[in-house]
Design a protein around this nucleic acid. Structure first.
Lengths: 246, 246
DNA sequence: CGACAGCCTTGACCCAGATCAATAGCCAGG
DNA sequence: CCTGGCTATTGATCTGGGTCAAGGCTGTCG
């Protein structure tokens, strides 16, 4: 957000260089990517693409947060993805957007026109390899989310979301994820509700409840402090470790 | 199921040759795969792998149906994947199973030891390409399921599941998906409940309700006839078309 | 400064689906 | 044939979270 203006003509200095779809590229591959890339910025709240629209680019989130949502005809909404810096948007080989993509905060994306990118995927295996790895990670995340949506209580859902945001925030900002943690919620109550399969009233009530019994502390509506992360994980109903799978 | 004994030493005659992870392979690549493949069979109900167990193979489902489920410590279960013939099991680059894999019917899998398969992925781009494509499809399916789990009513969930099974059954058996359709439910009421984030009682009640008002007909507990597929889709709350995205 | 617009919180009430419980069909085995 | 073990159905009741409604807080703009 503060670096919306930072447009890195040199990929070598890009903050997501080692996590994005280009992570595995060598210098030669990177320069090919550099030739077809361009940056786009969106202010918070703006829609990047509507589901069903033609989409002739793919992109990496450079800074800010984007969301993927599905909407039913009667207006029920479900967020199906939360895209943080380095996450990939779009699907090679598909011309139509399958989801609404929205900038949840101010957003900068590094875009590639779809056709050249697809050609590049065939010729530079490192891009395809990394994309496969990222897609498998997203599939795992989606499946974890399925457990949350199908089986967790409202309180567990909120605790899980806070834990995930805390963890992601910690990795992005290189702080330790143990002991007292604090972070800013990047989502409104309504966006949280859309992500968790709840109503915004229930989100609000459960956050109040977690505050009431000391699992979290709130400073304003957005700033959260977690005095005991393990306790939060317990509330989330996850296996205590949050273990990384080899 | 009926072809549990069919072990195809010649990939050319394999029923999933053109849909599985090997779909794009040329003759040379296929023969390399053929060298490292082996078949395994599991009777209905048997667990293929437990979540957290070491898993040193990956595989394609040849015939039958397998399920992926996640379980919480207190026993709540959520199915996160339904694997039909040609679907892929396991994750290259990961040694631990992330989910319980269970044979829901008698099951035959075409297995590859993980290490040789990983090496082969690097050297034969067609395998990696196809795997990426399949993973992207699964990610889309998982996200569609997130909408179902987060926002659909019990009745819509049942209708959606029936529609999906009907459609998959139709493509596998090359029957037309319009007009009166019939198929066998490959899942018990409890498995359906685990998939839909419901209890088995609710599943039973909603199936009875759909039968009562003529959306489906039941012959025994497993055989379903759908007189009007569009009506079923309406009950599922999906956009009428079920449109394929380019 | 006041007014309005967005967000958020809290309360009262309701209902879809969970839970608890009883029963029925359908084999396989003795 | 009866018995026991599944699987499924159906009823009665309970409850978590949805719905509806009324403010409260904060920041921005005139």
């Amino acid at each position: 957000m503060q670096d919306m203006h930072l447009v890195h003509h040199d990929c070598g200095e890009c903050p997501i260089r080692h996590r994005a779809v280009c992570a595995r590229c060598d210098a030669a591959e990177l320069s090919r990517l550099e030739q077809i890339k361009y940056y786009r910025s969106y202010p918070a709240g703006q829609t990047v693409i509507w589901s069903g629209d033609r989409m002739d680019f793919v992109a990496s989130v450079v800074s800010g947060i984007a969301t993927l949502t599905q909407t039913m005809e009667d207006g029920r909404r479900q967020m199906v993805g939360l895209l943080l810096p380095s996450d990939f948007v779009g699907r090679p080989g598909r011309a139509m957007a399958a989801y609404d993509v929205t900038a949840s905060t101010d957003l900068v994306m590094c875009c590639f026109r779809r056709k050249p990118f697809e050609e590049l995927m065939v010729s530079t295996p490192h891009v395809a390899q990394r994309l496969l790895e990222m897609t498998l990670d997203e599939l795992d995340a989606a499946r974890e989310w399925m457990l949350l949506l199908g089986r967790k209580t409202a309180r567990e859902k909120i605790a899980s979301l806070l834990a995930i945001i805390a963890r992601r925030d910690a990795t992005l900002n290189l702080r330790a994820a143990k002991g007292g943690i604090d972070f800013n919620l990047p989502l409104t109550r309504e966006e949280m509700a859309d992500y968790l399969g709840l109503t915004l009233e229930t989100v609000s009530r459960q956050i109040s409840a977690l505050k009431r019994d000391g699992t979290i502390m709130l400073d304003g509506k957005r700033h959260v402090t977690v005095p005991d992360f393990d306790r939060l994980l317990e509330e989330a109903g996850d296996d205590s470790d949050g273990g990384v799978l080899g």
